[in-house]
Design a protein around this nucleic acid. Structure first.
Length: 260
DNA sequence: GCTGCATGATGAA
DNA sequence: TCATCCTGCAGCA
């Protein structure tokens, strides 16, 4: 489900199959006006920024999609089956059909709107952005590092699972004030996010554990084997009871032993 | 059939 | 900090 890896993977996979002339519709009806504008025109490119997708059309039109918590894509080969009633937008390209379900955003935006959107985003590890802006702002911030990494203006693409797992892998207590960490700690955190997001983009799912450590074969990993602390009762590394806490409406998991 | 919950984000108070 | 929006599913009567 949707953290940055999902979005970049969707862009990579959809790009070669949708670029070209597309039929665009809104079976559910809530994007009917936008779909009418795009229908029959040619898609030029698909770009991912953090958790945002931008579909660029040859006409200059820009389609902004954000999956939010529930959004997802269903893909099918053309000709596609009839859409389910909840499909906000169907894009039927030359080689594939993509149905968009339950997005937070599915809207046409203008170039100024895109600038505003991108201006609110911090560097994105999956775009190979330079980490300086993140590192420098974090070095000055008094906010807890666990709150800060979910803030898309600090670093783009991290969600609740990667927050818990990235901080675990770096041995950092999420409550630590961001500025109290050392420069190498903040640097390692950025690098860790780069690694786990890239792995997630390739695999199409979040796996942050080392299968040898967990004692399973990579191909046999069940959901509970894929994370050290997220969604766990006990730490998959040290077996201590995993702590959890609601912060800003999101559940935060951490290991009190491995993250000091 | 209901309730609650989920890998997200926003706007009002 | 809270309510709200988006959807589907598990768990329970």
């Amino acid at each position: 489900m949707p953290e940055g890896h999902t979005i970049h993977r969707a862009a990579r996979l959809q790009r070669p199959l949708l670029v070209g002339e597309c039929r665009v519709s809104s079976p559910q009806g809530r994007f009917a006006d936008g779909a009418a504008v795009l229908d029959g025109t040619r898609l030029a490119a698909i770009d991912a920024y953090g958790k945002h997708l931008i579909y660029r059309w040859e006409s200059g039109a820009l389609l902004h999609v954000h999956l939010g918590l529930f959004g997802r894509f269903l893909t099918s080969t053309t000709p596609p089956p009839p859409p389910r009633s909840s499909v906000r937008c169907r894009i039927e390209g030359p080689k594939e059909c993509v149905d968009l379900i339950g997005p937070t955003a599915c809207e046409l935006i203008d170039p100024a709107g895109l600038d505003t959107l991108l201006g609110r985003l911090g560097p994105d590890p999956l775009r190979d952005d330079a980490p300086q802006a993140f590192l420098e702002r974090a070095a000055r911030s008094r906010r807890p590092i666990g709150d800060l990494v979910l803030d898309q203006s600090f670093i783009a693409g991290i969600g609740n699972v990667y927050r818990a797992e990235g901080l675990f892998l770096c041995g950092i207590d999420p409550h630590r004030e961001a500025r109290s960490l050392t420069d190498p700690q903040r640097g390692a955190l950025w690098e860790t996010f780069c690694q786990v997001l890239r792995a997630g983009e390739r695999a199409g799912r979040i796996v942050t554990t080392d299968p040898h450590e967990i004692g399973v074969t990579r191909s046999r990993m069940r959901r509970r084997d894929r994370t050290y602390v997220y969604g766990q009762d006990t730490c998959r590394r040290c077996d201590a009871a995993v702590r959890q806490e609601m912060r800003g409406g999101r559940r935060l998991w951490w290991c009190p032993e491995c993250q000091r």
